[in-house]
Amino acid sequence: MEQYEKIYLYKRIVKAKLFIDDHYAENIDLGNICDQANFSRFHFIRLFKSIYGSTPNNYLIKTRMEKAKILLAKGHSVLETSIMVGFDSPTSFAGMFKRIAGQTPSSFQKKQHAQKNAMQLNPLLFVPNCFAENNGWTK
């Protein structure tokens, strides 16, 4: 019986985590996330942190920043990216990005763009030579 209760509890926390994964671009807050799990706020934060190692709010921020990196790498502008990951203002987005990633969104984007170009122009720089030779890619 205890095992079933534990599984049920896990399912609810995982549901809340997946809610963040799916709705990070929307204006969600801890209240929305708690609703998904049907827990009191205190109990929910404690359980979420014990499973994922960070509070739901920190996990939401981290998810938004990881998605922002992907969008910036794809060439979206800082403004577009900030909106697409749920920020009202590009300034607050840029501030948060710099705090988490240690560089500004535009600096991150420039580096990603340079690496993407290098990958297209000279892909062999990114492949161990043994694989390149065995596949006939060096000819």
Partner: peptide, 8 residues
């Protein structure tokens, strides 16, 4: 870190 959660 947590197999049950990752499994679900």
């Amino acid at each position: 870190k947590d197999l049950l959660a990752t499994y679900e």
